[in-house]
Every structure is written in structure tokens, then in C-alpha cells.
């Protein structure tokens, strides 16, 4: 009985996730084709009509849109993203080639954000209107309101151009990772710091904190057993959101630092109208978001006894 209820819950969630993805894929398909015959846009305006026709033939662009759509969906289901309009390589291979670089960058950014943002927010909240709260939080607000490419350029000017400490582009050594990871991570660090601060401040106002203090619970224990687990539950959503939007966030950063990942691939594919690649990247980042959402949802049930036991 208990088990079947949980099972149907999971099924419902997964079904909703799949439906979201399907809806998104459909939107992507039609949106990308609204701008006209890709063959015509792809080739230069003065390309001979035979060439356009041959192109359209080769990529199945002559079939009615509905037929193309059905084919597209069927291919998607078998994880076939088609092949690039530009170099005819399978899209899946192109993406797999670029994925590790983005994962490396994205993970570094997230780790950076977590290790800077959470402690900062925590310290600010535990020492309200202390120096960290005053200066670091003002800085975080400032950082958060500045677009990340601005940071990227700023960091590059400082560390690459002026100080010549770190390379400004490429991905040959670990030193190449530092600036783009900072660019990607710093906005999220600021976001996390602010969120952590308000979550912690709110928890410290809760009656169970006062009650614990009345029972003589030392501050360190209050932080470890009362504050952190409760704050962690509140932070789960934000961290999930951060991970979910990593690919989108990487687009700007990778372009600024010529980092050879999915982000820069996306930008170049858009400008060359390589629709299969563009649509694959959009679907992939949507899938990342949907998957992290789903994961966060399940983690909640593990972490929060109020939800975990309510299911019974």
C-alpha cells in the first residue's frame, strides 16, 4: 500500500518530466523552422537554386512540416539528433565531443559557487551587521546585479591583460579553467550567499532555535544539528536551479574565453544556422533542468522528514 503510493507518485513525476521535454522539443522544432526554409538561410543568398534544392533534398527539408515533425520525434526517441547541416557529422558525436569541456567548466563553477556562497551567507547571517554581513553582502548584491560576461571581461582584463597571470582563452591546462570557472561561479556564489543568508536568518528566528538554547545546547551543536540540516533543505532548490541552468550560463562564459564546450558550439551553430545542433543543445539543456528538478524533488523526500513521512 505504502509502496504503491510512492511508486505512483514517482511515476507521475517522471511522466510530467517527459511531457515537459516533449512539449519543449516540439516548441524548439517549430520555432526554429518558422524563420523559413533552412536551406535558403543556410546557403548564401546568391546560391544557385539547384544547390538549394539539393540541400533541401539531402536533409529532408522538402517533406511537409508535419511529416518532418513526426520523423524528428521518432528520431529523438531513439536518441538520434540527426546530422549537422554544416559538416554532416552526427549531432550526437559533435555534442559528446564538446560535453566534457562544459561539464568540467560547469562543475567547477558550481563547486566554486557552493564553497564561496554558502559559507559567506552563513557567516553573514550568524554575525548580523558584522563586517562580512556589511561588506560581503553588499558586494554580493552588486555582483549579482552585474551580467556575467561583464565579469568575464573584467577578470580577463585584470588577470590576463594587465597582470599576465592567467591565459585568457583555450583549454590546454588547468590554468585555463580558472577565469571561466570564476566567471561562471561568481554570479551563482553571490546568489547562493544571499539566499543562504536569508534562509539562515529565518531559521535562527525559529522557536526551535530559542528552545534549543534554553536547553543549554551549545552554539556549535545548534549550527550542526538545527541550522544546517534545515538550511540545506531550503538551499536544495537553489542549488538544483543552478545546476539546471549551467549549460545556459556556460554559453556566455565559453564564448568570452573561447572555451570549447557546448556553449560556444551553440553560439557558432546559431550563427551558421546549424539547426540540428542548435535544437539538440536546447533539448539537452532543457533535459538537464528537468532532470535536476526531478532529482531535487527526490532529494527533498530523503532530506525532509516532513515530506518523507507524509507520503506514508
Amino acid at each position: 500500500m505504502m509502496r504503491s503510493k510512492l511508486f505512483s507518485y514517482i511515476l507521475r513525476k517522471v511522466f510530467r518530466a517527459v511531457f515537459t521535454l516533449l512539449l519543449l522539443s516540439t516548441l524548439v522544432f517549430f520555432a526554429l523552422r518558422l524563420s523559413g526554409n533552412p536551406a535558403r538561410i543556410l546557403l548564401s543568398p546568391d546560391a544557385p537554386p539547384e544547390m538549394v534544392a539539393a540541400y533541401a533534398e539531402r536533409y529532408g527539408l522538402n517533406a511537409p512540416l508535419a511529416e518532418q515533425y513526426v520523423l524528428y520525434l521518432r528520431n529523438l526517441l531513439s536518441a538520434d539528433f540527426g546530422s549537422s547541416y554544416i559538416n554532416s557529422k552526427p549531432v550526437a558525436a559533435i555534442i559528446i565531443d564538446r560535453l566534457p569541456a562544459t561539464l568540467e567548466l560547469g562543475l567547477s563553477g558550481i563547486v566554486l559557487a557552493i564553497f564561496i556562497g554558502i559559507p559567506l551567507g552563513l557567516m553573514a547571517a550568524l554575525d548580523r551587521s558584522g563586517p562580512i554581513d556589511k561588506y560581503a553582502m553588499t558586494l554580493a548584491t552588486l555582483v549579482y546585479s552585474v551580467p556575467s560576461f561583464f565579469f568575464g571581461v573584467l577578470l580577463m582584463l585584470l588577470f590576463s591583460v594587465a597582470l599576465r597571470w592567467l591565459p585568457s582563452s583555450g583549454s590546454d591546462t588547468w590554468r585555463n579553467l580558472i577565469l571561466p570557472a570564476m566567471t561562471l561561479g561568481i554570479g551563482n556564489a553571490a546568489l547562493l550567499a544571499r539566499f543562504t543568508r536569508s534562509a539562515v536568518a529565518e531559521i535562527m528566528q525559529q522557536p526551535y532555535i530559542l528552545a534549543a538554547r534554553a536547553r543549554g545546547t551549545p552554539r556549535s551543536r545548534i549550527i550542526v544539528h538545527y541550522l544546517l540540516p534545515n538550511a540545506g533543505i531550503a538551499l536544495l532548490t537553489v542549488i538544483g536551479l543552478m545546476i539546471g541552468t549551467t549549460i545556459v550560463g556556460a554559453i556566455v562564459t565559453e564564448t568570452v574565453f573561447a572555451w570549447p564546450g557546448l556553449g560556444s558550439l551553440f553560439v557558432s551553430s546559431v550563427s551558421s544556422r546549424d539547426i540540428p545542433v542548435v535544437q539538440a543543445i536546447v533539448i539537452l539543456s532543457a533535459a538537464t533542468m528537468v532532470t535536476t528538478n526531478l532529482t531535487v524533488d527526490f532529494l527533498y523526500r530523503v532530506a525532509d522528514p516532513r515530506i518523507r513521512t507524509a507520503q506514508r
Binding site: 525559529q206 522557536p207 526551535y208 530559542l210 528552545a211 534549543a212 544539528h225 538545527y226 540540516p229 534545515n230 533543505i233 532530506a303 525532509d304 522528514p305 516532513r306
Partner: peptide, 12 residues
Amino acid sequence: FQDPVGTLNPVR
């Protein structure tokens, strides 16, 4: 305290 549920740590 006044709020019996709220004065206990919800995750313990």
C-alpha cells in the same frame, strides 16, 4: 513554549 511543534527541530 507556546508553539509545541515549532519548538522542536523538524528534521530530528
